[in-house]
């Protein structure tokens, strides 16, 4: 049977998901589907539910109602196929570990492979090559700049050989140069994995993503090309800065992929 015409199965699928902390509803009736090899960004104001949505997808929180599927399975069963890159600024700056040791953590949880094995060593160094940090492998994490720390955390996620890469606020606390470099890395990785970004900054999303998921209690999924000023206003209220940066959102890339 020819399977090439069948639609690819979604990496992430949510159906009518609702969640709240106590009596405060955070997400209401969310349905969402993200296709394999997609490059998607969650945007929305602080407190709008972006992090909650992420935690639901990763199975760290259980929905009050509705269905969450990650690669077609309950998240707890399939989340080892996800590489998660948290914000680098939340780490203890004095934590005694080298770049290599931190990237090794990505290899944990594979029962058949010991971290001291040659295979694990190779995976770690390939991941470091991917983010161009091989020469810093033996440096302490505490010595690195913000942009470098972020790349270490991306390498750690890559060491777990993920099919889906999730980055939480990747542009906070890094400078413009590091941000540009991040674009390039993500575009390269997108050739072989689904990428999901979370950002409160629509400007970042602009040039590379194919679609934007606006999260503010409700969830609306748009292709990048379809974003309008009114939509942004609806999500954020009027925020001049973001409105301005919104101007370069409708990139050709956004059109191409949708």
């Amino acid at each position: 049977m020819d399977t090439s015409n069948l639609p690819t199965s979604p990496s992430i699928l949510l159906e009518n998901v609702s969640f709240g902390y106590g009596r405060v509803p955070v997400l209401e009736n969310v349905s969402l589907s993200i296709q394999e090899r997609g490059l998607v960004c969650f945007v929305g104001p602080n407190g709008g539910g972006k992090t909650t949505l992420l935690k639901l997808i990763l199975g760290l929180l259980k929905p009050e109602s509705g269905l969450v599927r990650l690669f077609g399975c309950p998240p707890a069963e399939s989340r080892h196929r996800v590489g998660y890159v948290p914000q680098h600024a939340r780490y203890d700056p004095l934590f005694p570990a080298t770049v290599e040791e931190i990237v090794q953590m990505g290899c944990l949880g594979k029962p058949s492979e010991s971290l001291r094995s040659r295979g694990a060593h190779q995976i770690v160094h390939e991941a470091l090559d991917e983010v161009e940090l091989s020469d810093l492998a033996h440096r302490p994490f505490s010595d690195l700049s913000g942009g470098q720390r972020q790349r270490v955390l991306i390498a750690r996620a890559l060491a777990s050989q993920p099919e889906l890469l999730i980055l939480d606020e990747p542009t906070s606390n890094v400078d413009q140069r590091a941000e540009n470099r991040l674009y390039e890395t993500l575009l390269r990785l997108n050739a072989r994995m689904t990428i999901l970004l979370v950002s409160h900054d629509l400007g970042f999303v602009s040039n590379i993503v194919q679609s934007v998921v606006c999260v503010n209690r409700r969830v609306v999924h748009h292709p990048t090309s379809a974003i309008t000023g009114e939509m942004i206003q609806e999500i954020y209220g009027a925020t001049d800065l973001l409105m301005v940066r919104h101007d370069h959102i409708c990139s050709d890339k956004g059109h191409q992929h949708e």
Partner: peptide
């Protein structure tokens, strides 16, 4: 050692790795 290091550095990531 690796498990202890991972939970001390980043509990959430360790949990996602199935530790």
């Amino acid at each position: 050692f690796p498990q202890f290091l991972a939970i001390c550095f980043d509990e959430e990531f360790a949990r996602l790795r199935g530790i």
